[in-house]
């Protein structure tokens, strides 16, 4: 860990200014400090935003809920409103990390979680995400945990988190404050980026911008599942995960929203999938079609080839369960 100047801003605006000038925001710190010890992250200034508020869950006027950026993962997952009305979010959060980490990790911080790519985390290895232009070591290296969707030769890293995958399925909105009291909202499905030619950028945050919260639209009900596949049964990142919100009416799917984790540089959402499901009667043919849509451009890089059949099979498991089809 390199030396840094520790700052505790007196409010959001101050935090945004410090961030704009190159400071790194620290909330829970469970990912940032991990990476600072490895010198993957080397901020000159550490901006501790833990005491600036943003730690409440509040109902919104349209029946949704606003989760403050500094609400811890534990508090969010345990909140009675989230458990009752947006259970896929509770389940996704609870499937991640450990009790200890969830107590520290925050809503905003978790959205900014960086990849677990072995080469990203090892500063002695070339990595375009860490040092643009040095190359992607994972492409021809150990890439069992890497992306099969939306990747390119610049970077095949995945976004590793769970919480955001559920938020994609729930069509959440990220609220962002900028310097000079500017603020904007970004659909979460547009918040994270694919690597493109700038794999160093995980998301659309600009310098000086701070996530202030995440808003969930009014509850849609239905069956809400989060399915996380991993060889270790807990305290492990997903090989593949699926967040599903499915509502059935009279034997047909009246609402469908699916998002996929650990398959791409961002949680994956394909509107064609939701459209294909909505209004349809559940059938294996339909589920196959969903898998086809999901995987139509999937590409493995060797060790991660298995994610393609794994995702296909997991889609079927989740949709059968969510629609009440027999297993």
């Amino acid at each position: 860990m390199r030396p840094f100047d520790y700052q505790r801003p007196d409010g959001l605006d101050h935090a945004a200014l410090l961030e704009r000038d190159g400071g790194a925001l620290i909330a829970g710190g469970t990912n940032l400090l991990d990476l600072m010890k490895l010198q993957v992250e080397t901020p000159d200034t550490l901006v501790d935003i833990n005491r600036i508020g943003l730690d409440e869950l509040e109902p919104t006027d349209d029946g949704g809920i606003r989760i403050g950026a500094l609400v811890s993962n534990s508090v969010c997952a345990a909140d009675p409103r989230i458990r009752a009305d947006w259970p896929v979010l509770s389940r996704a959060i609870l499937s991640g990390a450990s009790g200890q980490l969830r107590n520290k990790a925050t809503t905003g911080g978790n959205l900014c979680q960086r990849t677990r790519c072995y080469y990203f985390m090892n500063i002695d290895m070339p990595c375009n995400k860490r040092e643009p232009g040095t190359g992607c070591s994972a492409l021809n290296g150990r890439n069992r945990i890497h992306a099969v969707l939306g990747a390119n030769e610049n970077c095949i890293a995945t976004y590793p988190g769970d919480m955001a995958v559920a938020m994609y399925a729930l069509d959440a909105t990220v609220e962002i404050a900028g310097p000079d009291k500017a603020s904007r909202s970004v659909k979460i499905r547009d918040f994270h980026r694919l690597p493109g030619d700038m794999p160093q950028r995980d998301n659309v945050l600009e310098p000086g911008e701070v996530i202030t919260g995440v808003t969930l639209p009014a509850p849609v009900g239905g069956t809400q599942l989060y399915r996380k596949v991993r060889e270790r049964s807990s305290y492990a990142f997903a090989l593949v995960s699926i967040a599903a919100v499915i509502r059935m009416e009279e034997g047909a799917i009246s609402h469908a929203s699916l998002a996929f984790g650990s398959m791409a540089h961002k949680p994956w959402h394909d509107p064609r999938i939701d459209a294909a499901l909505t209004g349809a009667k559940p059938s294996d043919a339909l589920f196959d079609k969903v898998a086809d849509l999901l995987l139509e451009n999937a590409e493995g890089y060797g060790e991660n080839d298995f994610k393609i059949p794994l995702a296909r099979r997991t889609v079927k498991a989740v949709l059968r369960e969510a629609t009440g089809a027999s297993t």
Partner: peptide, 13 residues
Amino acid sequence: GQRINSCLTLTVM
């Protein structure tokens, strides 16, 4: 009262 990993937090916080 809450459990955390003390390795991933700074004293100054």
